[in-house]
Design a protein around this nucleic acid. Structure first.
Length: 482
DNA sequence: ATGTTC
C-alpha cells in the first residue's frame, strides 16, 4: 500500500487507479505528513481504496485531513456515485444519519456568564435529556406526530412553537428534506424514535457554552453575529437510536440484495444497492426521514437551551438575542450536480464525517450568507477549540464542495481508559476554567481532548487548501456531556 | 455513533 501513495504537495497525497485490484478511480488524500501517517496506521487509506472500487464512483474518492477509520467507509470521507449507474451505501453515510452541529449566538459576554456558569450548566443539565437511551424529558410524540416530524422536519416544530421562522432559514435545507417517507421505516426504528426527540445522546455528542476566542474573518463574523468575547452555544448531536436503526435495517437489506444485482465488494461493510433500485429508493426515503428527525432533535434542544438561558439570566430570548447562526450536518447522501471530466454530472454525494462547504453564490446557502459562502462548523471535544469556517470555491474542484467535520480520533476508547482517568481529565478542564457536567464518567475519559488530533491543525489545512476558510475560533467555558 | 455486543 505505502509504495502506492504519491506525494503531490505538502497537503495532498494520491493513489492512482489500480484496475488490477478493482479500483475505478484514484484516491485523493488532503493531509499533511503527520496526519497521513495516522491514516496509514489505522485502516483509513485502505478503506478509501475500497470505496474507489464501488460501482459508479466518479472522479476520485476524497479523504479529508480529519479522516480516520470508520465502518467500511472512512469518517472524513467523500465519494460521489453516478446518479443513474451508481450505488447508494448506508455504511457510507454512517450510523448516525445527519449527525451535525448548530451554533447559537448570544449578546452575553464571558464576564456576564462566568458568575452564573455553574447554575446555567446545572439548569441545562436538568432540562435537556442526555446520555445513552435517555427517554425522560423528550418531546412526547404520538405516532401520527412522529410521522409529521419525519416528513416535515423543523417546519412542523415551528408550528408547535419549538422553532422560529428564522431558525428554519438558518438550518441547512431549511430543516426539511424532501422525499422522506415513514413507510420505509421499520417498526423497531419508530419505537426507538418516539421517546428520544430532543436528546443529546452520548459518545462525542455534547452541548457547550463557549466564548468567541478569536475572529479571523471580520466581515463573515459580523454577519454571523460573532465578536471576540461573546458567548455562543454549540450543539453537536444526531438522529439517536432512530438513524442507527435505519442504517442497521438497510445494511441487512443491502447484503441480501447483492446477489440479485451482481454486486461484489472488497468489504462487506460497504454493503450497497443500485441508487435507483427499489431497495435504494426505500433506503433514501428512510434516510431522509432520519435527516428530518436529526434537525428536529437539534432544534428541540435549542428551544430548551433558550428557556434555560431565560431562566438563569432573567431576560427573554430576544433580549439575549439568541439567534441560530447556522445548522449543518456531516453524515448524509445528497443528490448534486458536479463538473466531472469537463461535463456536468448528476451524482449522489456520500459525505461521512464531512460537511458541505459550498462557495458564495450557491443557491443552497441561506440568502443571509449567500454572498460570503456556506458556514460550516468543526466541533471540538470538551477542552479543545471549535471552529467556524466558510465554504470556498476550491471545495468544488477538490472535495465535491466539502470540508472537515472534526479533529478525528487519535486513540481508541480502550486506549483512552488505559492512558487517562476521569478525575485527571476533570481537573485538567477545571484548570482551564471549563466547567463540566456529564451523565457518566466513561464518556469523559473516552472523549478527553487528548484522545483527539489537534483541531486547530485540521482547521488550518482546510483554510490553506481553500476549501473552507477560517472565520472564528471558539473555546469552551461550560460543557454538558451525555 | 448505539436500548454502550441481536
Amino acid at each position: 500500500m505505502l509504495e502506492h501513495i504519491k506525494k503531490i504537495s505538502s497537503l495532498e497525497y494520491r493513489i492512482e487507479t489500480d484496475a488490477a485490484i478493482g479500483m475505478n478511480v484514484p484516491v485523493r488524500v488532503f493531509a499533511n505528513d503527520d496526519l497521513l501517517k495516522k491514516m496509514i496506521n489505522d485502516r483509513t487509506i485502505e478503506q478509501a481504496v475500497n470505496v474507489a472500487m464501488l460501482p459508479g464512483v466518479q472522479k476520485n474518492v476524497v479523504v479529508l485531513p480529519d479522516g480516520h477509520q470508520g465502518y467500511g467507509f472512512p469518517v472524513g470521507g467523500v465519494a460521489a456515485m453516478d446518479y443513474y449507474e451508481g450505488i447508494i451505501s448506508p455504511g457510507s453515510v454512517g450510523y448516525d444519519i445527519n449527525c451535525g452541529v448548530r451554533l447559537v449566538r448570544t449578546n452575553l459576554t464571558e464576564a456576564q456568564v462566568r458568575p452564573r456558569l455553574e447554575a446555567l450548566v446545572a439548569e441545562l443539565f436538568a432540562t435537556i435529556p442526555a446520555g445513552m437511551s435517555k427517554k425522560e424529558g423528550c418531546i412526547d410524540l404520538s405516532s401520527s406526530e412522529l410521522d409529521e416530524v419525519l416528513v416535515r422536519g423543523v417546519p412542523w416544530l415551528a408550528d408547535h412553537n419549538y422553532a422560529t421562522k428564522d431558525d428554519i432559514r438558518m438550518c441547512e435545507e431549511g430543516g426539511h428534506m424532501e422525499g422522506a417517507d415513514p413507510h420505509a421505516v421499520s417498526d423497531v426504528a419508530r419505537r426507538r424514535a418516539m421517546p428520544q426527540l430532543g436528546s443529546i445522546g452520548s459518545g462525542n455528542h455534547f452541548l457547550e457554552i463557549q466564548k468567541v476566542d478569536k475572529i479571523y474573518d471580520l466581515e463573515a463574523a459580523k454577519l454571523m453575529g460573532l465578536e471576540e468575547g461573546l458567548v455562543t452555544i454549540l450543539i453537536h448531536c444526531g438522529s439517536r437510536g432512530f438513524g442507527h436503526q435505519i442504517c442497521k435495517d438497510y445494511l441487512v437489506v443491502c447484503e441480501h440484495s447483492h446477489q440479485k444485482y451482481g454486486i461484489e465488494l472488497p468489504d462487506r461493510q460497504l454493503a450497497c444497492v443500485p441508487n435507483l433500485s427499489e431497495e435504494g429508493e426505500s433506503y433514501k426515503k428512510a434516510m431522509r426521514a432520519a435527516m428530518n428527525y436529526s434537525w428536529c432533535n437539534r432544534q428541540a434542544i435549542t428551544h430548551w437551551t433558550r428557556r434555560s438561558f431565560e431562566l438563569v439570566f432573567g431576560k427573554s430570548e430576544s433580549d439575549l438575542d439568541m439567534k441560530l447562526v447556522y445548522d449543518i450536518a456531516h453524515n448524509s447522501a445528497k443528490v448534486e450536480t458536479h463538473r466531472i471530466e469537463g461535463r456536468e454530472r448528476k451524482v449522489t454525494v456520500h459525505r461521512k464525517g464531512a460537511t458541505r462547504a459550498f462557495p458564495a453564490g450557491s443557491a443552497e446557502i441561506p440568502e443571509k450568507y449567500r454572498r460570503i459562502g456556506q458556514p460550516t462548523f468543526i466541533p471540538g471535544s470538551m477542552g479543545s477549540a471549535s471552529w467556524v469556517l466558510l465554504g470556498m470555491s476550491s471545495s468544488l474542484e477538490l472535495t465535491f464542495g466539502s470540508t472537515v467535520h472534526g479533529a478525528g480520533r487519535l486513540m481508541s476508547r480502550t486506549a483512552a481508559h488505559k492512558a487517562y482517568n476521569y478525575k485527571q481529565v476533570v481537573e485538567d478542564l477545571q484548570q482551564k476554567g471549563i466547567h463540566l457536567r456529564s451523565t457518566t464518567r466513561y464518556d469523559v475519559v473516552e472523549e478527553a481532548p487528548q484522545v483527539y488530533k489537534d483541531v486547530d491543525i485540521v482547521a488550518e489545512i482546510s483554510h490553506r487548501l481553500g476549501i473552507a476558510t477560517k472565520v472564528a475560533r471558539l473555546v469552551p467555558i461550560g460543557v454538558m456531556k451525555g
